[in-house]
Nucleic acid binder design. Structure first.
Lengths: 193, 193
DNA sequence: AAGCTGACCGAAATACACTTTTGGTCATTT
DNA sequence: AAATGACCAAAAGTGTATTTCGGTCAGCTT
């Protein structure tokens, strides 16, 4: 077994554990056990628990960006791209599981590191969206507003429909989520006269 | 001093204290002191701290509804009404102060009663909005979607722009908040061709 | 005597001392 | 040279003493 394999073993084990138990309840010993390595081995690849956690979050963001990137065609319309990106994002459960677990942890026991992590992820996503939104504004496809505000609202809308709403209403299907996203982002509620 | 006066004294003192110190840090003794009454007097009007808190929240919701109601003209368009309701709501700081303080308390120390209270307020507002949204759908002014989901999104959008965004971006002016609300709710981001 | 009060009570929160767990290291093994 | 797990300090957890606070009510005031 080469070094890269072990690194990946650790990463996979940690991903599972963070998504399953949250930040706090994930111990380095447990990660080592799941990864089938000694505890010390983890520290040859990651300086500490925080960095391991950051790495997981970072690669989750990167994975989502990669998926989004693969769907974006420069020659297509912004909203066409948006629709297809939403489509693949909604399909990808493993990232969602981690984020949902961390949200629960923040809500239930308020782990600061979990809260920090989620904020970092949100900022990463908003930052990425911002670039795309700016291009769409420059090309005149969408209204010229503050790209950061628009990106932030897009993310909040997504979270509201996929997560927050479920405390008040039966979960929406992927199709419904896409429909509502497009209504608010593209055309608004107003009936076209 | 009549009984109604004393009741109001207590209510005003409690409002101030909850908005200033949050739920947990508001003690009945302190409320009594601010209200210039004995502690026992509070209990002649309210059975316990919870009921006092509920009463404050309830009257905050009612006050907001009354302000909204005053702006709504049945003969005007939904979006025209919406714009003017937002206008008066954004002006009204005292409710916001209470809600913001409670949000902080939930975030910082996770007081369950504060969390419960905010949820109750949110549900109250969504419930009220739902009626209005349903009428606008029935008259064909806005697209026929699930009124509860639409109302929920309206509230979340409002909170995102007035509160959540401020951790990432300089606070928006009232005019900007109204502008963004109308963009997402009425016409969407798409540039009209 | 009706309304109001604050000393008083038990329960719940806090502070503190002590125990256990856990993140991180490093001498030893493979 | 790479990997390990016993080991250590620090952080989290637990049990207990102490304080605070919600709620009561006997007595005072008007």
């Amino acid at each position: 077994m080469s070094a890269v394999d072990r690194r990946k073993q650790v990463l996979d084990a940690a991903s599972k554990s963070f998504a399953l138990f949250g930040y706090k309840a994930t111990t380095m010993e447990q990660v080592a056990k799941i990864a089938n390595v000694g505890k010390g081995t983890i520290y040859t690849f990651f300086t500490n628990k925080d960095e391991l956690f950051d790495e997981i979050l970072h690669s989750a963001i990167m994975e989502m960006k990669r998926m989004a990137e693969r769907e974006i065609r420069e020659d297509r319309e912004f909203f066409d791209n948006l629709y297809r990106v939403l489509d693949v994002l909604l399909e990808f459960r493993s990232e969602h599981e981690l984020f949902i677990k961390l949200s629960q942890e923040v809500r239930d026991i308020g782990t600061p590191k979990a809260h920090e992590g989620l904020t970092k992820v949100e900022n990463g996503i908003v930052g990425y969206l911002k670039g795309i939104v700016e291009r769409a504004m420059a090309s005149g496809e969408i209204k010229p507003l503050d790209a950061q505000v628009v990106s932030f609202v897009m993310l909040k809308l997504y979270i509201a429909l996929t997560t927050d709403l479920n405390q008040l209403h039966a979960p929406l299907s992927k199709e419904q989520i896409k429909e509502y996203m497009m209504v608010f982002l593209a055309d608004g509620l107003k009936t076209s006269k």
